[in-house]
Each structure stands twice: as C-alpha cells, then as structure tokens.
Nucleic acid binder design. Structure first.
Lengths: 196, 196
DNA sequence: ATCTTTACATACTCTATCGTATATAACGCC
DNA sequence: GGCGTTATATACGATAGAGTATGTAAAGAT
C-alpha cells in the first residue's frame, strides 16, 4: 500500500467534494484543500493544471460515480419495482446532510458545465423513476405525477438540513413510500400492483 | 419620491439577495454588488458596518419577509385547508428558479446564524403544514408523513433547476396536490375530507 | 444663505489566494 | 548504488476584494 503522505488525484477530488458540499464551489480553494489534506499547493499543481481543472474533474467524478452509481447499485440489488424505489429512498435517507448535490444544484445556476451535468443526471434519474412507476402499474399522466413527487422528495431530502434521528427518518420514509406507491384518489383508473 | 441615485439599505439587501440566490454567500461581494447597482463601495459602507452586517441583515430580511410572508399571504387568502395547501404549492411552482432558499440551505451548513434562522423557518412551515393536514382529517402518524412529503416536495421544487414550462408544472402540481390530499393505501384509518 | 447632517465617491492599504518558479525528497529500475 | 521519473515542499509575483480615510455633493433646519 502506498504511504499516506503520497496523494493521488483521487484524494484531492475526495477532499474537494467535501469542501464543495459544505460551502459551494467558491469554498474549493487550493490552499484550503491542501491545509485540510495536510499537503501543500505544490503537490496539487503536480496533479492538476489549475483550479478549473480540479472543478471539472470533480464534476465528472460526481456525475459518473456518486450520482449514477446510486442507480447502478440499486439496480444491481434487484427486487420488485417498489423494492427498488425503497432502496433509493433509503439510500438518500441514510446519506445524512453531507451530500454535495445541493451545492452542485446551486453551482449549476451559473456554470454551464455543472448545468449540463446536472441536467443529464436529472434526466437519467427521472427516466429511471418513470420506469419504476410504470412497472408498478401506473399509467398515463399518473406516471409523471408520481415520478415528479418522488423525485422532488428525494431532492428535498438532500437539501433539508435539520433532520430527525435516523430511525424516525426511516419510519417516515417508509410511510412516504407507501403513499407514493398507493392508490390515487380516483382508484378506478389506477390499480396498483404494489410489492408484486 | 427619492431620486434613483440615492440608495437605501433596502436596495442593497435586494441586490444582495439576488447575488446570494445565484452564487451563495461567497458571491455577495461589496464591489460586485456596487457594480450591479451602479453605486460604489463608499455608499455601501455608509449604510452598513461591514460585509457580515449585510449578510445578517439579508438573513433577517429573508426570514421575516420572504419566508414567513408566504405563509401569511396564503393564510390571508383564506379558503379550505386543501385550498391553502394548493395556494402554497402554486406559489412555489410559479416562483421560478430564482429563489434564494437553496443558497441559504447551503449557507446554513457552515454558518450558525443561517442555521438558526432556517431551523425557525422549517419549524414554522412544518407546523403550518401539520395544521393543514390535520384540518383535512389526517390523524396520527399520517399527519407527519404527509407533512414531510409535502414539505420535501416544496423544498425540492426550489432546488430543482431545470424545470418544464409553467403550464406543465402547474398541471403536475395539481395532480401532486390530489395525491397528497387523497386517501392512503389503507383507507380504513384515514377518511379524508378533501375540499371540505 | 450658511451650517449641519446625511449620502455618495475616490484613493489607498492590507490580506488572501491563485498560479509559477524552483528546490528537494522518495521511488523504480538496472 | 547511481539515475531518471514522479511526487512534494517553499518562495515569490500578481490580482482581487475587504475595509479605511478622506473628500465632495445634496437635503433640511434656522
């Protein structure tokens, strides 16, 4: 194993992700990051061209591993569509308030690269959720409705700072899951095959 | 009316709110703000002690007017509990992606003052939503469940950047409203008096 | 009308941080 | 065990932005 004093780009990106999650892209400073990692600027500029290069690598890393990886893991775990939705909700509920996603959403308001990456992620996740609800038997506009509600709730979970204890969060999330997968107020046009 | 070249603190706060919404607290710079307002630093330092003073005023303004004002306006408009919930959802859906709230949520991760203000706002809005759902006939843990789901969706709406056209957003929001106020999967313990 | 107060502008200092230049240390290999 | 390559450290400009000092302009009072 490599000695801990030798940093690869991965360590810089991991540290930058934490800074990003806490204070947005402005908080990702080379010197602040070096201080936190116990390294120096010189090391950084050996691995990256400049600060924009770090931010670009950060974004690419988040898009492929952090964001898409969640769907991949849920998909690999298998189970019914309702199970998969629950796995998604549970992952987010457990994640705590350390997600960099709110910072990236804010970043996307001004940075075109971040906006593009985020749009791809949103599209992929919404598509995935639509498939799940369609597999559960939802039809027509109801698919979009439930997909959007579920996704808004997942995003909101990331954004919400103060949160109750994990056990309470999970219990509430479980009931939210039931509500999202349950019948609608006009049950005649939506018969759900939950837990099929 | 005062001449347009004379700025009061209110104008500085309004401009700062826009910068905050776009780029977080780090983006609220005195010089950037002065440039945008067509004023100079000298004017700023006449109205505020320093940058922290501006940020504090900004936070106080958001807490009282922007955040609580929404509930007050909805409450003043009246109507049934379901009507009021819809008024809330419609307000947020119309607001576009210019809300400073995501930036404040991110800010709250590091700044104690922002965290305290946000906690008060969250508490007040959750309490208000609980009252609404209770008035609609929800009972027991279902009140908390629906409240949390509704609030997560409202927060998510703020955070989500790319959004469909207003008409589509409103149509989907209307169906989400129906879903939130509709019966649950076990209707026996929750008979809803929607649109009462 | 002048005088006081309020409001705005300009010029400067100081500090932080990016980026660079350059020096030193560890590692891989033959 | 020397030697190139890779990785880390330090010292230095350059720039941007916070805060200050000080000057000027507009209102209102008497």
């Amino acid at each position: 194993m490599a000695r801990p004093t030798r940093h690869g780009p991965a360590l810089w990106i991991a540290g930058a992700l934490r800074l990003l999650a806490e204070g947005g892209p402005e908080a990702v400073g080379i010197e602040a990051l070096a201080r936190r990692l116990g390294a120096t600027k010189g090391s950084f500029y050996h691995h990256f061209d400049d600060r924009p290069a770090l931010l670009a690598a950060l974004l690419a890393h988040w898009e492929t591993r952090a964001a898409m990886g969640v769907i991949d893991r849920v998909e690999a775990a298998g189970g019914s569509a309702a199970d998969r939705l629950w796995a998604l909700m549970e992952t987010v509920a457990r994640e705590g308030a350390a997600s960099p996603e709110p910072a990236i959403r804010l970043w996307a308001r001004t940075d075109p690269g971040a906006r593009a990456a985020l749009a791809r992620i949103d599209r992929a996740r919404l598509d995935y959720l639509e498939d799940l609800f369609a597999a559960m038997g939802a039809r027509g506009p109801d698919v979009v409705t439930r997909t959007r509600l579920a996704y808004l709730a997942l995003i909101g979970e990331h954004a919400l700072g103060e949160r109750p204890a994990l056990a309470d969060r999970l219990a509430t999330a479980r009931r939210i899951h039931a509500l999202l997968t349950g019948p609608r107020d006009n049950p005649s046009d939506f018969l759900l095959t939950v837990y099929a």
